[in-house]
Amino acid sequence: MPPTRLHVQVNPASSLAAAFTEARLRAAAAPGQVTISFGQTPEALEAGLAAAEVLLLAGQAPLHDLPRRAPHLRWISYTSAGVEWLLQAGLPEAVTLTNASGTHIPKAAEFTLLSVLMLNNQMPHFATAQRERRWAPKPAGTVAGRTALILGMGALGGAAAQALAGQGMRIIGNSHSGRPHPDVAVMTRGGDFRAYLPDTDVLIITLPLTPATHGLIGRAELDLLPPHAGVVNLGRGEILDADALAAKLRDGSLAGAVLDALPQEPLPPESPLWDTPNLVITPHCGLYDPGDYAPRCLDAFFANLARFRAGEPLHQVVDPARGY
Results as ranks from 00 to 15, higher is better:
residue 62 P to V: 10
residue 80 S to P: 01
residue 223 D to Y: 04
residue 186 V to M: 11
residue 55 L to H: 00
residue 67 P to E: 10
residue 7 H to A: 09
residue 156 L to D: 07
residue 20 F to T: 02
residue 280 V to N: 05
residue 174 N to Q: 12
residue 213 T to V: 06
residue 293 Y to N: 12
residue 262 L to R: 03
residue 260 D to P: 01
residue 285 C to W: 00
residue 31 P to F: 11
residue 64 H to L: 13
residue 168 G to P: 03
residue 216 L to Y: 09
residue 116 V to Y: 00
residue 246 A to E: 00
residue 147 T to G: 03
residue 258 V to F: 10
residue 111 F to K: 03
residue 250 R to F: 03
residue 218 G to I: 10
residue 108 A to K: 01
residue 295 P to F: 01
residue 160 A to L: 12
residue 277 P to D: 06
residue 90 G to L: 02
residue 193 F to D: 02
residue 229 A to K: 11
residue 275 D to K: 13
residue 140 A to S: 15
residue 153 M to I: 07
residue 312 E to K: 14
residue 276 T to R: 03
residue 115 S to I: 04
residue 176 H to I: 13
residue 98 T to P: 00
residue 173 G to S: 01
residue 13 A to P: 01
residue 153 M to E: 00
residue 247 A to F: 06
residue 306 A to L: 07
residue 41 T to Y: 04
residue 258 V to P: 01
residue 262 L to H: 15
residue 120 N to P: 04
residue 209 L to H: 08
residue 102 G to R: 07
residue 89 A to Y: 08
residue 124 P to Y: 05
residue 204 I to H: 10
residue 192 D to I: 01
residue 184 V to T: 12
residue 197 L to I: 05
residue 159 A to T: 12
residue 209 L to E: 11
residue 60 Q to L: 13
residue 185 A to H: 15
residue 185 A to I: 07
residue 109 A to W: 10
residue 183 D to M: 06
residue 175 S to V: 04
residue 149 L to G: 08
residue 178 G to F: 06
residue 282 T to D: 03
residue 238 E to P: 01
residue 76 I to M: 07
residue 146 R to H: 04
residue 187 M to E: 02
residue 107 K to Y: 02
residue 42 P to S: 12
residue 284 H to T: 09
